[in-house]
């Protein structure tokens, strides 16, 4: 089910490896590329391939399990499980708005137009909406 999919991180990036792993996996989960029933490799395998500490990957798996995406398999990897989308939490929406505004400001300061950013945002939302 997960064949051919890869997780990519940049160790030079300012974003912590844990955050990159969670974000990368969540994109695959939300887009449906990692469907329920898919098995993920063990923490050890992912950690060796990415060159990060085992605890970094384990923590990322636990975070996604806490969000209801994964069931952790002791000593193995994790399985993607069926998940009912929760109702959008107002606090989360507010936090999203703040982060989005900061991102938009950053891109506009680099010359991206509001129209261009709006198209990008719509495309991203459509791509992940399954």
């Amino acid at each position: 089910m997960s064949s051919g999919l890869t997780l990519r991180i940049d160790l030079d990036s300012g974003v912590p490896a844990y955050r990159q792993i969670v974000d990368g996996l969540r994109i695959l989960l939300v887009s449906g590329k990692l469907a329920p029933g898919s098995e993920l490799p063990s923490v050890r395998r992912i950690a060796v391939d990415l060159g990060v500490h085992f605890n970094t990957v384990a923590e990322a798996y636990r975070t996604l399990a806490g969000e209801g995406w994964l069931e952790l398999l002791h000593g193995r990897g994790a399985t993607v499980i069926e998940r009912d989308a929760p109702a959008a939490n107002p606090e989360k929406v507010t936090e999203f708005r703040h982060r989005l505004r900061a991102l938009v400001a950053e891109m506009q300061s680099q010359g991206a137009s509001a129209a261009k950013l709006s198209v990008e945002l719509r495309n991203a939302a459509n791509e992940l909406d399954v």
């Binding site: 997960s2 051919g4 999919l5 890869t6 990519r8 160790l11 490799p41 395998r45 992912i46 990415l50």
Partner: peptide, 14 residues
């Protein structure tokens, strides 16, 4: 070189 790393998500790789 940028330290970009990739992990396959296929359990079969193991």
């Amino acid at each position: 070189r940028p330290e970009v790393r990739e992990a396959s998500l296929s359990p079969a790789e193991e």
